[in-house]
């Protein structure tokens, strides 16, 4: 197993996914795609947690699974967030017949 992937590669992959998700959140106006980009960003964070957990365990020589636990909670949070968010999208669609986030100004004024 010599020549293992260095930690930085995982971190850079994670940064790339996070940046792509961030671009999506800023550029797209379709609320569903916006939500999917948020899921991408959450996944990037999970990848960072798992990479640090593994390399910390390697450096300490002792089990350090806190990163795994945090990823587990992030996935649970993502499920909750998706359920509420999609309910809001459905509600907006019934009210306005579109889901363009730029036109959602119900709470303005």
């Amino acid at each position: 197993m010599e020549g293992s992937v260095p930690l930085e590669w995982y971190l850079i992959l994670s940064a790339a996914i996070f940046a792509i998700g961030g671009v999506g959140v800023l550029l797209r106006r379709n609320a569903i795609i916006l939500f999917m980009c948020i899921e991408l960003m959450l996944n990037a964070v999970n990848l960072t947690f798992l990479a640090f957990s593994r390399y910390r365990t390697g450096a300490l020589g002792a089990l350090d699974l806190d990163g795994h636990v945090m990823s587990f909670f992030v996935i649970a949070l993502a499920a909750a967030e998706a359920a509420v968010g999609l309910a809001i999208i459905l509600s907006i669609f019934r009210h306005r017949r579109h889901i363009n986030v730029d036109d959602g100004n119900l709470l303005k004024n």
Binding site: M1, E2, S4, V5, P6, L7, F52, R54, Y55, R56, T57, G58, A59
Partner: peptide, 14 residues
């Protein structure tokens, strides 16, 4: 100094 110690995991017989 912690980050520099996060080296790749050695193989089973390394």
């Amino acid at each position: 100094p912690g980050l520099s110690r996060l080296v790749a995991v050695p193989g089973a017989d390394e």
